[in-house]
Amino acid sequence: MADNKEVDQISGTETTGHEWDGIKELNTPLPRWWLWTFYATCLWALAYWIVMPAWPLISSHTTGLIGYSSRAQLAKSVAEAREAQGAFLDRIEAASLEQIVADQELLEFAMAGGGSAFAVNCSQCHGSGAAGFVGYPNLNDDDWIWGGDLEAISHTIHFGIRSDHDETRFNEMPAYGRDELLTPEEINDVAEYVLSLSGSGEDAAAAARGEVTFAEQCSACHMESGEGDYELGAPNLTDAIWLYGGDKAAVVDTIANSRAGMMPAWTGRLDEATIKQLAIYVHSLGGGE
């Protein structure tokens, strides 16, 4: 090659000897800084293969001199995070719900921790904003079926509603229509009466007839006034909030076929500290009593 070097007349640069339609490729040397950078990256790559995990083997991979592992790194940072939370979690475990709420630092920790536990465990039914859906209570409002103070919320989370736990909250409303305990006309009258309790009924005469039936059939749980009872888990029928809908068809449906939503018991699935944080989070949403 050395003896048949061809030099381009115009630029004075050697050519590679490649030619396309009379156009010749100049053999321009690489810039020195570029070349040295290139050599440095080659060295870096070689060193990287040796120092870091790099090559796949049949059932594993080369581990590298310093034994780096991104999995171990993750485990380490998770452990560090646990460690950092540990002090708070210990205090939360030891304190009563009232004590936690009274301690601003613990309250903030519990609300944040409860919020993330809620997103993982509760939001599937209650919604990410805890606003619920038809049949799944809105936890932001001030209407509670089983009670809305810290203890009551904590109890509900622990044992659930109609769950498989022995201490579960449980009640049962008769299916007045399906089981033919009331005639359709009577059900219609009771529905009118129930709607009138919150001022939305239309048929005053039917409501007056329904009041008699209500007193006989419903007031044992829902109370004479219709305001319900936390102990029995009987909803307040006089307020503006309807779990299954507040129009007449929905109320008739409820009386005729009953309702029986369920919530799992979380004790045993979640640890005590998490349940406390959840109770405090739900209580802080705005309706806590």
Binding site: N140, D141, D239
Partner: peptide, 18 residues
């Protein structure tokens, strides 16, 4: 303003925003 829920109806019918 809270994005979820946008508003909450309370038991006395009043509306609350967070």
């Amino acid at each position: 303003h809270d994005r979820n829920p946008l508003f909450v109806t309370l038991s006395d019918g009043s509306i609350r925003n967070g």
